[in-house]
Design a binder for these strands. Structure first.
Lengths: 153, 153
DNA sequence: GTCAGTGCAAACTTTTTGCAACTAC
DNA sequence: GTAGTTGCAAAAAGTTTGCACTGAC
């Protein structure tokens, strides 16, 4: 199942590269493969570590930055910006979800809501061709709520 | 009208500072005043320039960073993160709006949609105390659409 | 063989931090 | 007077860039 998706995105990338006259380098496919092994969000630093861990393939940070832009352009990765670093997320066959961000501890969690999804999809925009969207809801998570109440700070 | 809002936010800040045992420094009020003179988004650099322009009050970047966190905590400013720098926006008495971000030229525009607003407000979240939210819709703006079609790139 | 792509290190940008001086209380 | 704030400069963190080398085509 998961392997199926990996094969599929490889194919998507291959087509994208071909169409745009880019080369099919092993680095690009190794990065794609690693990204599609990660569930949830990651930043360049984490991705660098994951690549190193696996030992399969070492790539430089510069290449990661280059490649992730390319993958975003190919529609295989989505970029987010919470916290200090850019966060990324695989986007192929990934359920659209919304984000809850705790302003106290910085924890990011996800949730789904069909109603909300529909409402956003149905919104008509003038003079704009929408491709994808991100909804971030900021607040205090339960854990921090309890801690804060205890501390009474 | 606008002056009314400025007075009101000054009052909110005063109360916030008092409540939290912070000092009522002239810098803080000058920064708040400048921010509530700005329509739309700004980053620290722009804010620094605005403060300098007015000639009224010169503050260091460090103070701007410190103060903006404080103002965000007081609910008077909202932080966004599109592009490379953190963007801010006054939030008191500011209409909730959604953002359209062009992935081609980077232009950020705003729109309102009552239906959408309601749908988001009505979404029930478990184990989370929501304070505010941001919706970013990414896509291609009309201008870039036309340019791209011409270029056929 | 050619040129896009890669790795490395240096540069750049934005934000944070340490410390001395200042000032609101 | 004292401790919270400020300004400055240095440091840190994240990202981009220049250049020589490599390898996909």
């Amino acid at each position: 199942m998961e392997e199926n998706i990996k094969d599929k995105v490889k194919q998507v990338l291959t087509e994208y590269l071909q169409k745009n006259g880019h080369r099919k380098t092993p680095e690009r496919f190794a990065i794609l493969d690693t990204i599609y092994s990660i569930k949830g969000h990651f930043n360049i630093d984490k991705l660098y570590d994951y690549m190193a861990e696996k030992g399969k393939f070492r790539v430089s940070r510069a290449t990661l930055y280059n490649t992730i832009i390319l993958l975003a352009d190919a529609g295989l990765v989505v970029k987010h910006q919470f916290g200090n670093t850019s966060q990324y997320e695989r986007s192929y066959n990934n359920e659209t979800h919304h984000h809850l961000i705790c302003t106290s501890c910085g924890k990011v969690s996800e949730f789904e809501d069909e109603k909300l999804k529909r409402a956003i999809a149905q919104t008509k925009l003038r003079a704009f061709h929408a491709l994808h969207y991100s909804l971030y809801i900021y607040g205090i998570c339960n854990k921090c709520m309890r801690t804060k109440c205890k501390k009474t700070k």
